[in-house]
């Protein structure tokens, strides 16, 4: 599904050069639920951004669904992201000026989908995360857990093969975090969606198929809990 080969990411300023990711190679199988752990600043989010094509590696190769991602134009890259990848962020990243339904419809805006169809798919996605009664609300009127469920609905509305979740439960209490985790597990088992999740929570990580640990920009260990 997803393959990283000898990925390196270096941040350069005038005086300092920081090695954020050091020679990372990683394979994620289709239908796998992978978690990434590591101390703050070890490069977890950078790795996730590179997987999601939001950031470019300094060197190395990314392959998604047998397509080597190299030399894509802005437009082609946007389209690829739009069709293949869904994102869930720790701080939700909803557009506060738009009602919940419009937020969920967002990925479909950049596809050839009629507004009626958009509405239908977004409503279905919201039903899946149990928020169909909040469609007309604005994000600021929702709790943290509800916001994250809207963000999940937005991530799955376009039926992507891969979901990248950056600490999706990081801002939530344990009960809410548990709920969100259940939704992700459901997506993974029922829809066979591949999920890569960055987390700080060992308990959450143990519920995934496999855990990789990152330290100072390098992969240090890998634990297989289950098989996909």
């Amino acid at each position: 599904m997803l393959s990283l080969s000898q990925i390196e990411k270096i941040y350069r300023t005038d005086t300092v050069e920081t090695l954020a990711l050091n020679n990372i190679s990683l394979e994620v199988a289709k239908g796998e639920f992978l978690s990434i752990m590591g101390p703050s600043g070890c490069g977890k989010s950078t790795l996730l951004n590179i997987m999601g094509l939001l950031d470019e590696p300094t060197s190395g190769q990314i392959t998604i669904e047998n397509q080597v991602i190299h030399g894509y134009s802005d437009k082609a890259l946007s389209q690829f992201r739009n069709e293949k990848i869904g994102f869930i962020f720790q701080s939700y990243h909803l557009i506060n000026d738009l009602p919940v339904l419009d937020n969920v419809e967002l990925p479909l805006l950049y596809r050839k989908v009629s507004s009626k169809e958009r509405r239908k798919l977004a409503t279905e996605a919201l039903e899946k995360v149990g928020l169909s009664n909040r469609m007309k609300h604005y994000p600021t009127q929702l709790s943290g857990g509800q916001k994250q469920r809207v963000a999940i609905a937005r991530a799955i509305v376009g039926r992507p093969d891969l979901i990248l979740a950056d600490e999706p439960t990081g801002n939530l209490d344990s009960a809410m975090g548990h709920e969100i985790m259940e939704i992700l597990e459901q997506l993974n088992t029922a829809d066979r969606t591949t999920i890569v999740m960055v987390t700080h929570d060992e308990g959450m990580a143990k519920r995934t198929h496999r855990l990789v640990r990152l330290f100072d920009g390098a992969l240090v260990s890998s634990n297989q809990f289950y098989t996909a």
Partner: peptide
């Protein structure tokens, strides 16, 4: 800018 980031993440190209 955050809205622009979100829109780009979910598939909006610069031109759009």
């Amino acid at each position: 800018s955050s809205e622009i980031g979100i829109r780009k993440a979910f598939g909006a190209s610069s031109r759009t």
